[in-house]
Design a protein around this nucleic acid. Structure first.
Lengths: 206, 206
DNA sequence: GTCTATATGCGGATAGAC
DNA sequence: GTCTATCCGCATATAGAC
């Protein structure tokens, strides 16, 4: 089953680099120096390749949204968020062309939608834990809006940033998004936690 | 020149409803009950249709980014932002498939990029005016991050919202984005202005 | 498992008559 | 200005030999 894995790996790389709709199955095969027919022996369709890639992403982010994980300090939140950003970066093609995904491969699109919905719920849970721990100071409406903003920014900022600074190195990496995520959180944090947050933020100044 | 305008109007409607890549020139012609050849008599290419639509959008938002406009009260800011959101909604297909746009029609993509860059600059100017007027309370770094967040949210939230709540009415309208834009601004506003902001926000609760 | 060859369909765009 | 007919190229996917 070696060829199968090579197809998945090469597809992920090409999809991230050039975008799902612009990478044809013929292209993937050519890049791997195998025939198109061979590729279709391993995967019934292009959609199936995408579906297996999504499966890998799901396994990677599932532990981050696990309710059992306690988030009681800013550090816990930050680690979780950073791991999430890295996962999103590694599979950024899914978020980059979501409109295409949803229309061309509805099953895949629905799965990504579901993952994002789970992330929103997890973000709310984590914000509430931080509130209970006294790290955050905000009312219920603010918490809800903040959690949604966090997930929105984490998923969409890399794409936005890439579009606006096309060709610039690192524009789609997690660092750009990280800075703005800290900025979102900042007004609701004070005391010692706020100092730590400012410290983190200073590491991401451009 | 009647047919030409009908083509533009119909294209805009179809692009917004189904997305730029999924609406073919043949489809536009069929919908208007004219022949594909006729369409290509009026526009050399599909790209030219898009280019004329962008031109209309540019004319619509230019006055909103005009440095001559004074933004000294929360009300001024809110009006400008709301007009901007309505313009984005009216031409949402441009933001919905920006990756496609940038790769397939680089000239068009660059123009939209340029418009967004202008919007960021305008947002910063306006935030600084609000700061000077005592409506906002923030340092320079916070102002810069806030202005970027505002433009990012205004341009990307409608698309994100639509993808997450596909089929739901109003998900891509300006209202959803409006609520979160006010939430972004809120922590940096206090006193009488804050009360007014909360009042505005209450009108958009879901 | 892997290849070659090919079916099938669609989208953008053009030619030339009316 | 508008039509009909058609070219061209590409992408997904399949058939059948090796």
């Amino acid at each position: 089953m070696r060829t199968r894995d090579r197809i998945l790996e090469q597809s992920l790389g090409l999809f991230n680099a050039e975008g799902l709709p612009r990478v044809s199955t013929n292209r993937i095969a050519a890049e791997l120096q195998i025939s198109p027919g061979n590729l279709y022996y391993h995967f019934r369709s292009k959609e199936q390749i995408v579906e297996w890639l999504i499966r890998r992403l799901e396994q990677r982010i599932a532990p981050l949204a696990d309710p059992a994980v306690a988030v009681v300090a800013l550090d816990d939140w930050w680690l979780t968020l950073h791991l999430g950003l890295e996962a999103i970066t590694a599979y950024r093609f899914l978020y980059r062309d979501m409109d295409f995904l949803l229309h061309e491969y509805p099953r895949c699109g629905a799965r990504v939608q579901h993952q994002v919905a789970l992330s929103v719920r997890a973000a709310m849970r984590q914000c509430q834990q931080l509130l209970a721990a006294g790290v955050l100071r905000a009312n219920a409406a603010e918490i809800a809006a903040l959690a949604r903003q966090i997930v929105f920014t984490a998923t969409c900022w890399p794409t936005y940033s890439r579009l606006m600074h096309i060709g610039e190195a690192g524009a789609e990496g997690p660092e750009h998004a990280a800075y703005y995520l800290l900025a979102l959180m900042s007004p609701y944090v004070d005391g010692a936690s706020r100092q730590y947050l400012d410290y983190l933020r200073s590491k991401y100044v451009r």
